[in-house]
Simulated assay, not measured.
Amino acid sequence: MDLRLTGKKALVTGSSSGLGEAIAKRLAAEGAFVVVHGRNQARTEAVAKAIAEAGGAAALAIGDLGTDAGADAVHAAATAGGPVDILVNNVGVYEPSRTWKDTTPEDWAGLYNTNVLTSVRTIQRLVPAMRERGWGRVIQISSVTGEKPQASQPHYAATNGARNSLAKALAQDLRNTGVTSNAVAAGGILTADSLERVTQLGRQNGWGQTWEEIEPRLVEALSPNAIGRIGRLEEYADFVAFLASPLAGYITGATLAVDGGWGI
């Protein structure tokens, strides 16, 4: 399927690794010019280089979106040579071990700045130009915990609820402009880092020795879903690429669960 992304420019925040990297590479494979964002120069350059080697086009935006100065630097780099058409706000922090007992108000504020205010900063800088041109896509990468919070990670769940609300409020503000705003509520995401961690957890709990043995039992114990496994990076990247495309022009104000039917 041709997603008709050739000629579009996309900024994917937090795309120097993990899910952001996968999304950036998928958009580039569909013909978009992708601005790879990160705070680490070497890792960000490596992703942009990989995109170029695969035949795509990419540029860099280095900066800490947790500050206004960093957001200004990212905005300047991302819009050099032309405006941004697609904004994927992927920057976020996940702290699975935190509980109500060991999470201070300062921890709550810090996570809110990283998971929510980074998106606010990019939206305020990039969306006005989308509105003026009459076309754009704004996508928040959220989590199923925003609508289905658990006892652990209360501050993480709260920030994802805020991300979902942000997407809906922005969609209302962008009525009849040609710019859409949505959130993708992710379930489990299997990355290289998480694979090592959850494999070790599975062995400790007697769920098996290999990942093939561990995965279904881990999912059943920690986050039961209707598919029986954890989501793969490419599955999320494919969905985001569709949502970023002209083909998804009738979708806005939605929080779209990509979680394998978690909790149904």
Score class of each variant (00 low, 15 high):
L3H: 10
R4Q: 15
G7W: 04
G7P: 06
A10E: 09
S15E: 06
S16A: 13
E21Q: 10
A22Q: 10
L27R: 04
A32T: 08
A32C: 09
Q41C: 02
Q41H: 06
R43N: 09
E45A: 12
K49T: 12
D64C: 11
L65D: 00
A69N: 07
G70S: 08
A73E: 14
G81L: 03
G82F: 09
P83C: 08
P83S: 13
L87H: 05
V93R: 14
Y94S: 05
T99C: 00
D102P: 01
T103N: 14
D107A: 05
N115H: 02
T118I: 13
T118H: 15
S119Y: 06
V120E: 03
R121C: 15
T122I: 15
Q124K: 15
V127C: 03
R131D: 07
G134T: 11
R137H: 09
R137C: 12
I139W: 10
V144G: 00
K148L: 06
P149K: 00
Q150F: 13
Q150V: 13
P154R: 02
A157S: 07
N160Y: 01
G161C: 04
R163I: 10
N164G: 11
Q172F: 09
L174C: 08
R175P: 03
V179Q: 02
A185G: 04
A185E: 07
R197L: 05
L201T: 07
N205R: 09
Q209A: 12
E213S: 03
P216G: 04
P224W: 01
A226S: 02
I227G: 06
G228A: 01
R229M: 03
V240F: 04
A248Y: 05
I251E: 06
G260I: 05
G260E: 03
G260Q: 06
I264Q: 13
